[in-house]
């Protein structure tokens, strides 16, 4: 049998992003390329203008809603677990548990396996398929929350905090800032699971993606756009909006609302204060520090590459426990986003 070809010889950062040379495709490239494999629909991973895109059918649907039907010339959807071969490279998508349709890209070539995690989490999320552990030789991970201060709380408990605040101030509308794709719909779902069954109102920017989630069979109950609704009906209820809307003029239409923000960053007080948030909800769609460390260990990867986020802490930690690790410092990733 031929000796294995080390991963760094066939998978490496190039101008447009992480490039698989024998397969001649990129993973989550930050500029238009001939062929791209896309881990999930967030805008720092999925961009428009590629010629051919391969992704889960949910991610393809999300890209079409965000960028239009023609944002790529050709789409090929791949179900979790399906295996295809691209110029001798075996490609498989495994659930990442990050948002609906999110996938890890599993690549086998030359007797070695690399897993590109994209963004992922291990915590329970009723709106997407749970993370699946794939053992590999090289694990290429995100590190958005890679500092030991980040320990995310169970979303259920944070939603209980929200409902307690609503009970304490029943006349004030609760305005929840949440990333429009994934976080917003997960929050609605968890709020429903906590027994809240009144209509939940939505900022215009999250309407289309929320409808898409419903079309893809995620049960979200009675959700309505703010536009066109009677302000009297909204008062004292829940309104979902993108984080940026919390501080802008749009939010002034609600009389003295409680501004909440659902994000892993809310664990740090300074971050919540900087946002002017009154009710921080620590809900994250990324792995926290203990999950990140545990996942890396479970993959049995000999080597860990870090794509984006707090690479310094993670690389230092892995080196100190004797695991080979390096930062790829891929450009174009939003280190703050969720």
């Amino acid at each position: 049998m031929a000796s294995p070809i080390s991963v760094e010889r066939w998978l490496y950062p190039a101008e447009a992003g992480l490039y698989c040379a024998p397969g001649d495709f990129y993973i989550d490239p930050h500029r238009p390329v001939e062929r791209a494999v896309i881990t999930h629909g967030h805008s720092d991973h999925a961009r428009s203008g590629h010629r051919a895109v391969m992704a889960t059918s949910e991610t393809v649907a999300i890209m079409k809603v965000r960028y239009g039907e023609t944002c790529a010339c050709a789409f090929q959807s791949l179900a979790y677990g399906d295996i295809i071969t691209v110029n001798g490279v075996t490609v498989k998508l495994a659930p990442a548990g990050h948002i609906l349709g999110s996938a890890q890209v599993v690549l086998d070539y030359g007797g070695q396996r690399a897993v590109v995690s994209g963004d992922y989490k291990r915590a329970h999320d009723p709106t997407c398929t749970p993370f699946e552990l794939v053992s590999c030789d090289v694990f290429i991970t995100e590190a958005t929350f890679a500092l030991p201060v980040f320990r995310h709380e169970p979303a259920r408990g944070e939603v209980a905090k929200l409902l307690a605040s609503m009970a304490a101030e029943p006349e004030r509308t609760h305005l929840i800032g949440a990333y429009g794709l994934g976080k917003c719909q997960r929050m609605i779902r968890v709020i429903r699971d906590a027994g809240y069954d009144k209509p939940i109102y939505m900022h215009g920017a999250v309407v289309e993606l929320t409808k898409l989630y419903q079309a893809l069979c995620i049960e979200l109950g009675d959700v309505r756009p703010v536009a066109g609704a009677d302000p009297k009906d909204i008062a004292g209820g829940i309104v979902m909006c993108p984080p940026s809307a919390l501080g802008d003029r749009w939010s002034r239409r609600f009389n003295d609302p409680v501004t909440a923000f659902a994000s892993g960053w809310m664990r740090v007080r300074g971050r919540a204060r900087q946002r002017g948030v009154e009710l921080p909800l620590i809900v994250s769609d990324h792995v926290d520090w203990p999950e990140l460390i545990a996942t890396i260990a479970e993959t049995n990867a000999e080597e860990v590459w870090v794509t984006h986020g707090r690479d310094d802490a993670l690389v230092h930690h892995l080196a100190s426990v004797g695991r080979k690790a390096r930062a790829l410092a891929l450009v174009g990733r939003d280190e703050e986003a969720e």
């Binding site: 500092l147 030991p148 300074g270 802490a313 100190s320």
Partner: peptide, 18 residues
């Protein structure tokens, strides 16, 4: 906790008590 991880955390949080 490892001193480097502590330092990075402290730099990020911006406050020792927290």
């Amino acid at each position: 906790i490892d001193p480097v991880l502590y330092k990075l955390s402290r730099d990020y949080v911006g406050d020792t008590a927290e």
